[in-house]
Amino acid sequence: MTNDPITLGHGSGGRQSAELVSFLLESFRKRGIGPEMEDAAVIPGGYAFTVDGFTVSPRKFPGGDIGHLCVCGCANDLAVRGASPDFLGISLVIEEGFPKDEAAGYMESAAKTCGEIGMSLAAGDTKVVPVGGVEGLIMTGCAVGRIQTPSVLSSSNLQEGDSIIVTTSIGRHGAAIAASRFNLSVDGLESDCAPLWPALQPILAEKGLRCMRDCTRGGLGTVLCEWAEASGLHISLEEDAIPLNLQVRSLCDVLGFDPMYMACEGCAAIAVAPGCAEDIVRKLRESPLCTEATVIGRVLEGEPSGMVSLRTSIGGERLVDMPFGELLPRIC
Rank of each mutant, 00 (worst) to 15 (best):
residue 109 S to D: 09
residue 186 V to K: 10
residue 327 L to Q: 14
residue 170 I to A: 01
residue 203 I to H: 03
residue 188 G to S: 08
residue 247 Q to K: 15
residue 117 I to E: 08
residue 310 L to M: 00
residue 203 I to V: 07
residue 86 D to T: 00
residue 41 A to I: 08
residue 40 A to V: 04
residue 142 C to I: 09
residue 122 A to Q: 12
residue 273 A to P: 13
residue 271 A to L: 10
residue 156 S to N: 06
residue 103 A to K: 12
residue 329 P to K: 05
residue 313 S to Y: 00
residue 102 E to M: 15
residue 67 G to S: 07
residue 258 D to V: 07
residue 304 P to V: 07
residue 195 P to I: 07
residue 270 I to G: 09
residue 230 A to Q: 12
residue 306 G to V: 03
residue 23 F to Y: 14
residue 123 A to T: 07
residue 2 T to L: 05
residue 255 L to A: 14
residue 3 N to V: 01
residue 168 T to A: 11
residue 75 A to L: 02
residue 184 L to K: 15
residue 86 D to G: 02
residue 118 G to P: 08
residue 10 H to K: 08
residue 61 F to S: 01
residue 5 P to F: 03
residue 323 P to F: 03
residue 268 A to R: 11
residue 111 A to T: 12
residue 239 E to D: 08
residue 16 Q to F: 04
residue 38 E to K: 08
residue 36 E to S: 15
residue 8 L to P: 13
residue 51 V to C: 11
residue 302 G to A: 11
residue 304 P to R: 04
residue 289 L to C: 04
residue 147 I to V: 14
residue 243 P to T: 03
residue 226 E to D: 15
residue 268 A to D: 14
residue 66 I to T: 07
residue 263 A to H: 12
residue 29 R to Q: 11
residue 271 A to Y: 01
residue 37 M to W: 11
residue 145 G to A: 10
residue 270 I to Q: 12
residue 1 M to S: 00
residue 55 T to N: 13
residue 171 G to E: 01
residue 326 E to M: 12
residue 147 I to W: 01
residue 310 L to T: 05
residue 185 S to V: 15
residue 234 H to Y: 08
residue 148 Q to V: 03
residue 203 I to F: 00
residue 1 M to Y: 06
residue 2 T to C: 00
residue 315 G to W: 07
residue 10 H to R: 10
residue 274 P to V: 04
residue 140 T to V: 15
residue 131 V to E: 11
residue 155 S to P: 09
residue 89 G to A: 10
residue 166 V to A: 01
residue 220 L to D: 09
residue 306 G to E: 01
residue 240 D to S: 12
residue 296 I to F: 00
residue 294 T to W: 06
residue 88 L to S: 00
residue 46 G to D: 02
residue 46 G to W: 04
residue 60 K to D: 12
residue 192 D to H: 05
residue 216 T to P: 05
residue 110 A to G: 05
residue 143 A to E: 02
residue 172 R to A: 14
residue 108 E to T: 13
residue 128 V to W: 08
residue 43 I to H: 09
residue 237 L to P: 07
residue 310 L to C: 02
